[in-house]
Design a protein around this nucleic acid. Structure first.
Lengths: 335, 335
DNA sequence: CTGAAAGCGCTTACAG
DNA sequence: CTGAAAGCGCTTACAG
């Protein structure tokens, strides 16, 4: 059953040339309708499909794009990928996924591979370690090779490249302001990503909203044990009224620690989290969360990349901001 | 910066033939050490990388495999993908992901595309709708085309093909037996995937463990509202002592409904769930869960596929079972 | 309207 | 040890 039929074999069976078969299948006006029909019928009979590799070689396009994901276990990135996939299918592009595991070295290896021109374009969310090391040479190199690149989600970097993400500063600014309207005095934040661009911006937004009107209450650590300690201090000593949580880890840890220490949510402590909506609604109590619209980010990232692939010589670079939404559930309900 | 250098251009610069350059770069013994060195130096200088598309065309291999995922928001599949990726990288293969969204039609479209020989092999977890319709023609067709295929996770189908998954019947059999050792009388199950192969097997395991010693308590529905109602009946009317939950939806809904109705976990109700370990530990109380070892499934699926790609003519087909683990957390703690 | 030829960028048997 | 030629499966300018 193996061995797909080729143009050459079709041509032989039809007693015409390879060129004629090729043109007929592509509905060339050069070919007579009668021949087109004959060719197409036999092609259908044999289930002919052009060899994509050969087509790619001719067109010097690969028909694929590379997507670098720092951590696929993170539901946010899984959903972004879902949006990318859906849009790529519409564009007729294949998506090759790479997982950097937040590692600079793995990311570098992937990017260098992609720099060989393996794909028509690249979508990348920059790894945590890369941000920490501030070593962006490999990314810059990719851009310099004129391979279309779009940064998604993690976009707070000084590179001339298309970007799409959310306004992290504004999200926390607005969320803090919202909590203030509930007459909460002590508003704190919890984060395990304070060393990343998006994490920093969220802290900035929080600070700007509070201005110097109140004290800052910040629990920040990438290490679970240390984050736990700092959170406990905020909850039990400082007795904050509300916690803005910047990521999955800090949201779930706040939720869990409230339970362990008998703090009622929202009675004793209000929580706003960064987790996906499906989970947020199942928690008990349900947790108000920031909907980052991951599918939309993915979809628009793909559209942006496709645009750049089609217009490689355009000079300007876009930065797109996707609107987010603060979804109010039980964890911020007023008495 | 664009336009990667080709063999032909290197050859011109070196005043040798294309063949010589090609052979030199591949360390052919036909070529003198001196020439090899000259060629490699210039290639390095120009950062020459062979065009993968051309190499693939020659070798009639694509160096890529296709992975079909029913639903990437499901943490289980995200983690399987992670395992696949890691192993693929070791094997030097690219992974093209496709998301079927549990849809028969989308799956069929993807599979037909892959049947053109676009990839060297395919890993697939069969979509829910496909299972419901019992329409496996497209999958069988892929197999008939001699494209190496490995079914992962959802493997309870009568096809001559390599498979890798867990023993779903045994998992629920053992879990039920375990709950019996806690002296629980009324053990129920909750599932929203009872129409799928893995779901059916889990129910079978539960029934076999109980034998006819007790009544069966089963809440099964793919519709949230209906599942909620059935679960409430089990919890409030039948007053089951424990619930085995078969998937994310039913686990989280049981957790949430216990909270809404003032049932203490584990005091009034014990729960065993199918969710990922990270989440399970953060819940309040933490929920005992079945660790399906998704990374290992992905990794071994990739190994199995690679083996089949390398030995296309071997006749036998493997079914690999990955060992799972019931992790005991607070939700099944005894008083 | 049809076909021979060149070419995409490689590899490899074969000749010298 | 080096190179000319054929070929992987296509597409497309060009000739007839």
């Amino acid at each position: 059953m193996k061995n797909r039929i080729t143009l050459k074999e079709l041509a032989k069976l039809l007693n015409v040339s390879v060129s004629t078969v090729s043109k007929a299948l592509n509905d060339s006006p050069e070919i007579s309708p009668k021949t087109i029909q004959r060719v197409k019928e036999l092609a259908a009979l044999h289930k002919y499909r052009p060899n994509p590799t050969a087509v790619n070689l001719k067109s010097s396009k690969s028909g694929t794009i590379g997507v670098i994901i720092p951590n696929i276990s993170n539901a946010f990135f899984a959903n972004v990928l879902s949006g990318i996939e859906a849009q790529a299918q519409k564009e007729g592009l294949q998506v090759i996924t790479y997982i950097s595991n937040e590692s600079w070295e793995e990311e570098k290896k992937i990017v260098e591979m992609l720099a060989t021109g393996f794909v028509d374009g690249v979508l990348i969310a920059i790894a945590e370690e890369t941000q920490r090391k501030k070593e962006f040479g490999h990314i810059q190199n990719l851009i310099d090779y004129d391979i279309p690149v779009v940064l998604y989600d993690r976009i707070d970097f000084d590179m001339t490249v298309d970007k799409i993400g959310v306004d992290d500063r504004k999200i926390f600014f607005d969320a803090t302001k919202y909590l203030q309207t509930l007459n909460l005095k002590k508003i704190g934040i919890a984060t395990s990503i304070h060393h990343m661009g998006v994490g920093k911006l969220r802290i900035t937004g929080y600070k700007e909203a509070l201005a110097s009107k109140e004290d800052f209450f910040i629990a920040n650590s990438a290490k679970p044990d240390s984050l736990r300690e700092k959170l406990l201090k905020l909850m039990l000593q400082d007795k904050v009224d509300a916690l803005l949580c910047s990521d999955f880890e800090s949201t779930m840890m706040a939720y869990r620690l409230a339970f362990e220490n008998g703090l009622g949510i929202p009675k004793d402590l209000k929580i706003v989290g960064f987790i996906n909506g499906k989970l947020a609604r199942y928690l008990a109590p349900s947790v108000s969360y920031v909907d980052q619209k991951p599918e939309r980010i993915g979809e628009n990232a793909m559209i942006l990349l496709k645009k750049r692939i089609n217009n490689p010589n355009e000079k300007g670079r876009d930065t797109q901001i996707v609107e987010t939404e603060l979804v109010h559930l039980e964890s911020t309900a007023s008495a």
